[in-house]
Simulated assay, not measured.
Amino acid sequence: MMKKIQILPLLCISIYGLGQIPNFPTSQAFAPSNLGNFSNPNYGSSASSVIPSVPHGGLHNQRSSQIEQQNARMMQEDFKKVAQEQELRNKQENYYRQQALEDSYYNLPSFSGKAGTQSYYDAYNQLASLNTDNYSISEANFIVENAYYGNKQNYNQFKFGIQKTAKQLLQKMKDRKQDTESNTDKNLMIFEYLSKGMKLGGAQYKAIKYDFEDYMGAKDWSKMFVSKLLKTGSGQCHSMPLYYLMLSEEMNAEAHLAFAPNHTYVKFKDEEGEWQNAELTNGIFTTNSIILESG
């Protein structure tokens, strides 16, 4: 600290040149020639007190600015990542708290001792044992419906009727000289049979109709069943598409169940790879826009 104080007067002299000069203790006045060249900025300064110059080139400033900007971006990215991770943790914690809260609301009694309940336990076990990559739509649907009837229905009889119709439809295609390997032709045959009706094996079959009476099964849940459709020739947007898929399964045709709000229908790809929407409730092919608008 003392060294800094001692050097300070010399720095002031070197910086300000002929600024304020201290009076020296002498009785003889100095002549101007004896004062030396005070205009020299290095006068009275030792070599060690010279302040080195700092380069101020444009390239140096540009490089420093780039480094600062890069560091700022890295910091922003780090802050953003930390904020995202924290948000994810908050969502997970909120989800677990909500689940625990909802679970605490319900303390429902068990109905396992009531008559008929065992049929649904059996149905669940049968569905759980199916191969999810390769199972029969007819079998899965029958398991569900059979539970409602207390496991008293006959699956072989249920499936026989579907297989018989599928074989007759394939024979109809052969009679018409249609390609039985064409996925489009097979789907069109199924759709025609269900929406228009046709003569098969010497018997005339009518088109299936929409059942407007208790179509949601509020009074009688069996209104939703494919087995009910096969007996009465009428169904709704639940049983109709399922029956379609059962026939396509037996005919080795590819079709898919599609969902819309409170509604299901059938989609399949034609030979050009375009998706077609088979609407069985009114017997027409419809567009995606109409389905979206109606939903």
Rank of each mutant, 00 (worst) to 15 (best):
G36W: 00
A72Q: 15
P41M: 02
A31R: 09
N61W: 06
N40D: 11
G36H: 02
G19Q: 05
Y43M: 05
I67S: 05
N37R: 04
V82R: 08
T26S: 15
Q86I: 06
L35W: 02
F79V: 12
K80G: 04
P52K: 05
H60Q: 12
G36P: 01
E85R: 12
Q28R: 13
Q69C: 01
I15H: 04
A31K: 10
S46M: 09
A47Q: 10
E68D: 09
I21P: 02
E87R: 09
S39G: 05
S53L: 13
P52T: 06
F30P: 12
P32G: 07
V50S: 04
Q28F: 05
S49D: 06
A29I: 13
G36M: 00
V50Q: 09
N23K: 08
E93G: 09
A72M: 13
N61D: 13
E68V: 06
K81H: 08
L35G: 01
S48I: 07
Q28H: 10
I51Q: 06
K80Q: 12
N37V: 05
Q66L: 05
R73Y: 11
V50T: 07
Y43T: 03
S14K: 00
S53F: 09
E77C: 08
A72C: 05
F38W: 12
Q20K: 14
P25M: 06
S14W: 00
E87T: 08
Y16N: 13
P25Q: 06
E77F: 10
L35Y: 02
Q62D: 14
I13N: 02
S49E: 05
L35C: 04
V54S: 08
Y16C: 10
S49Q: 11
N40V: 01
N23H: 07
A47H: 06
V82H: 07
F79C: 10
Q62M: 13
E77V: 14
S33D: 09
N90P: 02
Q84K: 11
Q70G: 04
F30T: 11
G19R: 00
F79I: 14
I15P: 02
S48F: 10
K80S: 08
F38V: 06
P55I: 03
A29T: 14
Q84L: 14
Y43S: 02
N71D: 13
N42D: 04
Q69L: 04
N34E: 15
L88W: 04
G58C: 08
E85F: 07
N23E: 12
Y16S: 13
P22K: 10
Y16L: 15
L59D: 14
G58H: 11
K80A: 12
H56R: 13
N71T: 09
R63P: 01
I13L: 07
I15D: 00
F24I: 15
A47W: 03
K80L: 08
A31Q: 07
A47V: 13
N42G: 02
T26M: 14
A83M: 12
G36Q: 03
G58E: 15
K81F: 06
V54L: 13
M75V: 08
I15L: 07
I15G: 03
Q66P: 00
Q66F: 03
P52E: 07
Q76W: 07
I67R: 05
N94R: 14
E68I: 07
F30L: 15
F38Y: 08
G19P: 00
P41K: 00
V50C: 03
I21C: 06
A31E: 07
I67K: 09
H60E: 14
S46Q: 09
R73V: 14
Q66I: 04
V54N: 09
S14N: 03
V82W: 04
L88F: 04
N94I: 09
N23M: 07
I21G: 01
Q76S: 14
